[in-house]
Amino acid sequence: MFSRLREDITSIIQKDPAARNAWEVITCYPGFQAIVMHRCAHWFWLRGFKWLGRFTSHVARVLTGIEIHPGATLGRRVFIDHGFGVVIGETAEVGDDCTIYQGVTLGGTSLSRGTKRHPTLEPGVIVGAGAKVLGGFTIGAGAKIGSNSVVVKPVPAGATAVGNPAHVVKKEGAQSEAGAAQLFSAYGVTQNSDDPISKVLHKLIDHAVSQQEQIEKLTQAVSHAGIRCDNPDMKDKIDPKQINILVD
């Protein structure tokens, strides 16, 4: 037990530059306190003391603002940062080295008892503040869920999901396992990770501008051939810079 506590404290100090020492983590980090209390509640739950497990979970919620059902499974070195408003459902599974920020919900969309209703987070997943992961599917290892995203379908390993509903952006380029283990993106934010919808819109705008230029060239060629063509209204021309600013 004490080895797992040391792991948790070390992981928090590594991931949070505001954490100065172990005593500060133990006394001032509600995420750490909630996980310790959850382990007690989970122990009761697995041994048939259901009410005692739920009551321990309830006390933890009152003290920390974090609600973890005693039936949920949490791995090693899970870090709940800030934590207020985090809700983790009964059949949720959180893998080793996952990071969850405030306001996150790992929720279920089914009322069927005895079924897998809540998501599974594989090792190394980062879930940004306010994100909602709803359903009994799997978020792949090392995936990142952007802040305030609403995820309702599986996310591949190493990918980033952003938006409402969330759109998946696959990670560009291969990366070694050692490099992936050292990579940490606070709040699920990655460098140069544009919204996939905006990327598609930018491509459509560029395509429309290219077509506009081709039409102008064809119109000029037809006019030189002696065929009369009405000149297009210059006011209706697409201004790519103006539209791209609106899309960004």
Rank of each mutant, 00 (worst) to 15 (best):
Met1Ala: 11
Met1Gly: 15
Phe2Glu: 11
Arg6Lys: 14
Thr10Gly: 14
Thr10Asp: 11
Ile13Ser: 00
Ala19Met: 11
Asn21Phe: 14
Asn21Glu: 13
Asn21Val: 09
Ile26Tyr: 11
Thr27Val: 13
Tyr29Thr: 03
Tyr29Leu: 06
Tyr29His: 09
Pro30Val: 12
Pro30Arg: 14
Ala34Leu: 05
Ile35Gln: 00
Ala41Ser: 04
Trp45Phe: 10
Leu46Pro: 05
Arg47Cys: 15
Gly48Cys: 08
Gly48Leu: 13
Phe49Pro: 00
Ser57Tyr: 04
Leu63Trp: 11
Leu63Val: 14
Glu67Cys: 03
His69Arg: 11
His69Gly: 01
Gly71Asn: 06
Gly71His: 03
Ala72Phe: 02
Gly75Thr: 10
Gly75Tyr: 04
Val86Asn: 00
Gly89Leu: 02
Glu90Ala: 07
Thr91Ser: 01
Glu93Met: 15
Val94Met: 02
Asp96Pro: 15
Asp97Leu: 07
Ile100Gly: 06
Gln102Asp: 04
Val104Gly: 03
Thr105Gly: 07
Gly107Trp: 00
Leu111Ala: 04
Ser112Gly: 06
Gly114Trp: 01
Thr115Gly: 06
Lys116Ser: 04
Lys116Tyr: 02
His118Ala: 10
His118Thr: 10
Glu122Gly: 05
Pro123Arg: 14
Ile126Met: 06
Ala129Thr: 14
Gly130Pro: 08
Leu134Pro: 09
Gly136Tyr: 03
Ile139Ser: 01
Lys144Gln: 14
Gly146Tyr: 01
Ser147His: 03
Asn148Glu: 10
Asn148Ala: 11
Ser149Phe: 02
Val151Phe: 02
Lys153Phe: 06
Val155Ser: 01
Ala157Trp: 11
Val169Asn: 12
Glu172Asn: 10
Gly173Thr: 07
Ala178Leu: 12
Ala181Trp: 05
Ala181Lys: 10
Gln182Ala: 13
Ser185Tyr: 00
Ser185Met: 06
Ser185Asp: 00
Ser185Pro: 00
Ala186Cys: 13
Ala186Met: 14
Val189Ser: 05
Thr190Ser: 11
Gln191Thr: 06
Gln191His: 13
Asp194Ser: 12
Asp195Cys: 02
Pro196Arg: 02
Ser198Arg: 12
Ser198Ala: 15
Val200Trp: 12
Lys203Gly: 12
Leu204Glu: 14
Ile205Gly: 08
Ile205Leu: 11
Ser210Asp: 15
Glu213Thr: 09
Ala221Tyr: 15
Ala221Trp: 14
Ala225Gln: 14
Arg228Ser: 15
Cys229Tyr: 03
Asn231Tyr: 15
Asp233His: 14
Asp236His: 13
Asp239Pro: 05
Lys241Pro: 07
Leu246His: 08
